[in-house]
């Protein structure tokens, strides 16, 4: 009986050691803690984003090559409110046009070779992405020539998301993808 116990212990130990060796040979991916201490979520190359203000759902290209995120906006007009600079713009989703007004956070200057620099207004938007709510800067631009109305750039990804391009629309704007 005692020898059987000894054998079982040996087998279990050997098994764990072997399993540990095999599992640790490659670089295993473990959930990384973001700057805010909360768990980091994995999202795909394309994801759903919801504008919190009016529950508009939009499809976004997840772009680690872009510093600032971008929203497809039309009829962008500079306005003033209480002596402060605001921006009025239209967001189109599912054929419906929604007018939004936001304080101007800053202006993005995009230099182009041999041409005049492009100016894009930047506003702060409350969004939901993979179940996380956050407020981030979005530049406003006509994205009708692009496949997706929203571009999620590094300013949204930093500290919160890791990108797996093998996935697409893994979750919804309101919830993280099931693993």
């Amino acid at each position: 009986m005692a020898s059987l116990v000894r054998l079982s212990v040996f087998v279990l130990l050997a098994g764990f050691l072997l399993g540990g060796c095999v599992g640790g040979s490659g670089e295993k991916v473990v959930t990384v803690d973001g700057n805010n201490g909360a768990g980091v979520i994995t999202i795909g190359e394309v994801e759903s984003v919801r504008l919190a203000q009016n529950n508009i759902d939009l499809t976004a290209r997840v772009d680690t090559g872009a510093q600032t995120s971008s929203l497809d906006a039309r009829n962008i007009v500079n306005i003033e409110r209480d002596g402060k600079k605001w921006v009025r713009f239209e967001v189109v989703a599912a054929g419906k046009k929604t007018v939004m007004e936001k304080p101007l956070a800053r202006t993005l200057l995009i230099k182009q070779h041999g041409r005049e620099a492009l100016k894009r207004p930047v506003v702060k938007l409350d969004i939901f992405l993979a179940g996380k709510r956050m407020q981030r800067e979005f530049s406003l631009a006509d994205r009708s020539n692009f496949k997706y109305p929203v571009l999620v750039g590094r300013n949204v990804l930093q500290g919160s998301f890791i990108v797996d391009v093998s996935r697409k629309n893994a979750g919804s704007a309101m919830s993280e993808a099931s693993k």
Binding site: L7, V11, G15, L18, G20, V22, G23, K28, I162
Partner: peptide, 26 residues
């Protein structure tokens, strides 16, 4: 045989559990 089976089981379990994607930066 028991030893071999247990080792095989633990081996395959750890292989399945390991996500082999590496993390690269910006």
């Amino acid at each position: 045989v028991c030893v071999a089976l247990v080792l095989l089981l633990l081996c395959s379990a750890s292989l399945l559990a390991a996500d082999s994607k590496q993390v690269i930066g910006e």
